[in-house]
Simulated assay, not measured.
Amino acid sequence: MSVDSADTPGAVHARAAALLATAHAVLVSALAGHRRQARAELARHDSERSAFVDDLLTGRAEPGGLAERAHRYGIRLSATHTVLVARTPRLTAEIVRRVDAALAARFGEGNTLTTQRNGDLVCISAGGLRGIGAELAHLLLAEFGAGGWQVAVGRPHPGMPGLVASLDEARDALDHASKLGFTAPVLNAADLLVFPVLLRDRGAISDLVATVLGPLTGARGGPRPYLDTLSVLFDNQGNHTATARQLHLSVRAVTYRLDRIHHLTGYHPNEPTQRFTLHAAVLGARLLGWPDATTR
């Protein structure tokens, strides 16, 4: 800025202020453009990552091109991988980015790949990576606090079909946990293998529920109080005192309900030979939504 000898101090100050305002506007515009470009780059990165994981887990892409894209993310398609799925209604793209960066920092680039898919957080990890489920739970706890989210860990499987199998196991574990009321923050699909077995023959499990628990529908007040009693009893490993406390009943009331169940169904959970049948029927009822699903 040039200064004329005839300029007054006020004029010089005004021109200087105008120059600073112009420089500030240019700087603000440049920073805004940089932020827009950064956001666009993040969106493109997220979109490419999401598309790659979707192609990887559906098998729709050409194998050669998929292998080339996998190499960019450090994934060997022939290796063994484990898929983890986290479910919460509060998930956002920014949270997924933070979790992805934290897992990569903890386990090393190329050992984990995290993205958002169908509303869930999906993490592909190298097979045999120890502590990945606990670490993901720790990160979600920091993001959301306790409750309102759940992580399921599929079993490790080799190759591309193994990725799909591990994903299905993790998603099924979350679905089963929702139906059964399991609230543990981390679920291992290997611990829940009995439930896919139960549902594999839906006709058989429906017949088991109807045969074993069906007589409870004739009880005064319906089957729900008795079904809840059995569910809580099995959840507490047969402990009558803990069951009574959780149900806000006396131990005598719990004993009475169990005796009524025995009278109506012929099965008693205190009988070792009958306990497994009753427990399987109760689990089946929870998976099927019985008796509510049959009365709609």
Results as ranks from 00 to 15, higher is better:
residue 279 H to V: 08
residue 2 S to A: 15
residue 86 A to C: 14
residue 160 M to R: 15
residue 254 V to P: 05
residue 221 G to L: 09
residue 253 A to N: 10
residue 262 H to M: 11
residue 102 A to G: 14
residue 212 V to C: 00
residue 102 A to T: 13
residue 146 A to L: 10
residue 114 T to S: 08
residue 140 L to K: 02
residue 236 N to H: 15
residue 294 T to G: 05
residue 94 E to N: 11
residue 240 H to T: 10
residue 53 V to H: 00
residue 269 P to E: 03
residue 231 S to P: 03
residue 48 E to K: 00
residue 18 A to C: 14
residue 100 D to Y: 00
residue 248 H to W: 14
residue 140 L to H: 09
residue 84 L to C: 12
residue 92 T to A: 07
residue 15 R to V: 15
residue 65 G to T: 00
residue 220 R to F: 02
residue 58 T to I: 02
residue 127 G to D: 12
residue 162 G to K: 01
residue 5 S to A: 14
residue 225 P to S: 01
residue 124 I to W: 03
residue 265 T to S: 04
residue 294 T to A: 04
residue 14 A to R: 05
residue 42 L to T: 13
residue 278 L to K: 07
residue 56 L to V: 02
residue 41 E to H: 01
residue 257 R to D: 01
residue 51 A to E: 12
residue 136 L to Q: 10
residue 157 H to K: 11
residue 230 L to N: 10
residue 287 L to H: 06
residue 82 T to F: 02
residue 276 F to A: 13
residue 68 E to T: 00
residue 196 P to I: 04
residue 205 I to G: 01
residue 103 L to Q: 06
residue 234 F to S: 11
residue 48 E to W: 01
residue 3 V to R: 04
residue 243 T to L: 05
residue 129 L to H: 03
residue 45 H to I: 05
residue 195 F to L: 07
residue 126 A to W: 03
residue 185 P to H: 10
residue 234 F to L: 04
residue 164 V to H: 14
residue 281 A to R: 12
residue 5 S to M: 06
residue 170 A to S: 12
residue 105 A to H: 07
residue 196 P to D: 06
residue 129 L to D: 11
residue 204 A to D: 10
residue 25 A to N: 09
residue 206 S to L: 07
residue 88 T to Q: 02
residue 114 T to E: 11
residue 71 H to R: 11
residue 166 S to I: 02
residue 254 V to D: 00
residue 72 R to A: 02
residue 285 A to G: 12
residue 106 R to T: 08
residue 212 V to T: 09
residue 235 D to F: 04
residue 51 A to H: 12
residue 108 G to H: 04
residue 173 A to G: 15
residue 168 D to M: 10
residue 108 G to R: 05
residue 121 L to C: 11
residue 295 T to L: 14
residue 235 D to I: 00
residue 124 I to L: 13
residue 279 H to A: 15
residue 144 F to C: 06
residue 87 R to P: 03
residue 196 P to H: 08
residue 256 Y to V: 08
residue 242 A to L: 14
residue 33 G to D: 06
residue 192 L to E: 08
residue 3 V to S: 07
residue 86 A to S: 10
residue 198 L to A: 02
residue 37 Q to R: 11
residue 57 L to A: 02
residue 69 R to P: 05
residue 24 H to A: 12
residue 256 Y to D: 13
residue 17 A to V: 15
residue 290 W to P: 01
residue 123 C to A: 07
residue 262 H to G: 03
residue 12 V to K: 06
residue 106 R to I: 01
residue 223 P to W: 08
residue 60 R to F: 02
residue 129 L to F: 03
residue 281 A to H: 12
residue 8 T to D: 05
residue 1 M to Q: 12
residue 93 A to S: 13
residue 276 F to P: 01
residue 244 A to W: 03
residue 35 R to C: 05
residue 130 R to P: 15
residue 1 M to W: 10
residue 289 G to H: 04
residue 53 V to I: 11
residue 2 S to C: 03
residue 37 Q to L: 09
residue 90 R to Q: 13
residue 250 S to L: 03
residue 67 A to Q: 03
residue 284 G to P: 04
residue 34 H to A: 08
residue 200 R to C: 00
residue 30 A to R: 15
residue 228 D to H: 09
residue 204 A to N: 09
residue 13 H to P: 00
residue 169 E to Q: 07
residue 175 D to F: 06
residue 25 A to R: 12
residue 184 A to Q: 15
residue 172 D to H: 10
residue 268 H to I: 01
residue 214 G to R: 03
residue 10 G to I: 08
residue 137 A to Q: 13
